[in-house]
């Protein structure tokens, strides 16, 4: 293994890590903007998978291999399902009209009223920016003292042990939650027999 030490040192050096981080971060940010602004819902679903891929890259950089792989495994399939359902539910024509980044038409009012209307259409942006900024200020106002300890490469084992000993009760709860969600989803989505008309009206 020691023949890779030079390479490893280089890759894990601060500069390389920073550069890699910024590459992945820019990818993630631009793709997530793409998710919320793409006109086509199906395309934005596929872009979302890209976002999750970038995020799992971040997880790998944070040395959480298990989570990174679980992220890929769960979300690749899960979001594909979302995309499939979006495919089945959306009418391409009506979807094309619903562009989220453009506002509704303005009324003919002038002056202060129109300004307030503009502001009110900017509410989502305002809320988002405000929440980001609040969190950012909170992060900055704290002085973090990062631990210099290395993450153990075998942290899957640590995770597994913690899940089966200390956190076994939450684990069970999570599984009960999943089961409940499964049954609930099936019950909700199960087609009632008296409505065959909608299926045919879909196309």
């Amino acid at each position: 293994m020691d023949q890779y030490m030079i390479l490893k040192d280089y890759v894990s050096s601060a500069d390389a890590e920073t550069a890699l981080f910024y590459v992945i971060a820019i990818l993630a940010i631009s793709l997530s903007v793409g998710v919320i602004s793409d006109r086509n819902i199906i395309r934005s679903g596929f872009i979302l998978i890209g976002v999750f891929g970038a995020i799992s890259g971040l997880f790998l950089m944070l040395q959480a291999q298990f989570l990174a792989l679980a992220q890929v495994m769960i979300y690749a399939v899960g979001i594909t399902l979302v995309v499939v359902i979006a495919l089945m539910l959306t009418n391409p024509r009506s979807e094309r009209e619903a562009v989220i980044t453009e506002g509704d038409e303005f009324s003919q009012e002038t002056g202060a009223v129109q300004f307030i209307q503009r502001l009110q259409q900017g509410t989502p942006a305002f809320v988002a920016v405000f929440s980001f900024f609040t969190i950012y200020l909170a992060i900055r106002s704290e002085s973090w003292t990062p631990v210099t300890e290395k993450v153990s490469t075998d942290n899957v084992k640590v995770l597994g042990e913690a899940l089966t000993t200390v956190y076994s009760l939450p684990f069970e709860f999570a599984s009960v939650l999943l089961l409940a969600a499964l049954i609930g989803a099936i019950m909700l989505a199960k087609a009632e027999k008296r409505q065959p008309a909608i299926e045919s009206a879909e196309d």
Binding site: I36, L58, L62, I85, E95, A98, T123, W144
Partner: peptide, 30 residues
């Protein structure tokens, strides 16, 4: 900043973008 703040800021930013999309989008799937 140092690395931790970077990651936290990225997370905050993605959270903000997600929130924007959640409020603004009209399609339930989105």
């Amino acid at each position: 900043q140092d690395a931790l703040v970077r990651y936290l800021s990225l997370s905050a930013l993605l959270f903000g973008i997600g929130m924007y999309g959640m409020i603004k989008s009209r399609n339930a799937v989105r």
